[in-house]
């Protein structure tokens, strides 16, 4: 709960925000200004991690913010491995978070 979108009325760039788009993330409805990336909407709504790593089951979210590290990947509709920091949110996007076990972890109780 630490990242924060600067309210438009306090922005030295004198910004005005467009209408908000609505997405669902694992069933929860989140909104953000049109043109936001999916990562932007998650961050604005207090989420800073949304993936669980396969080996150590650790939380991850944005790291590089420019599409290089792939740490922020999630599933949009039926498509896995979409970089949240690069993909703009479209109204109605259905997003789910990714948690995966490695093939060699099967049967080892990894979840």
């Amino acid at each position: 709960m630490t990242a924060r979108r600067l309210p438009a009325q306090h922005d030295p760039a004198e910004r005005t925000d467009p209408e908000r788009v609505r997405i669902t993330v694992d069933g929860a409805e989140l909104t953000g200004p049109a043109g936001s990336t999916i990562a932007g909407i998650l961050l604005e709504n207090g989420r800073d991690s949304w993936r669980t790593t396969s080996r150590d089951s650790r939380p991850r979210g944005v790291f590089c913010g420019i599409g290089v590290c792939y740490d922020c990947i999630l599933t949009v509709g039926a498509e896995r491995d979409v970089r949240a920091c690069q993909r703009r949110a479209c109204d109605g996007d259905v997003v789910s978070l990714q948690e995966e076990t490695r093939p060699d972890a099967a049967g080892e109780g990894a979840s």
Binding site: T2, A3, R4, A39, L43, G65, C85
Partner: peptide, 25 residues
């Protein structure tokens, strides 16, 4: 450095300029 809340400096810059989001307080 793998903890959420640790970012590259470029991430802070990109997200501040394109989303007007500060990654922390």
């Amino acid at each position: 450095w793998t903890l959420p809340g640790v970012y590259t400096a470029g991430a802070a810059q990109a997200i501040a300029k394109s989303e007007r989001i500060a990654l922390g307080s």
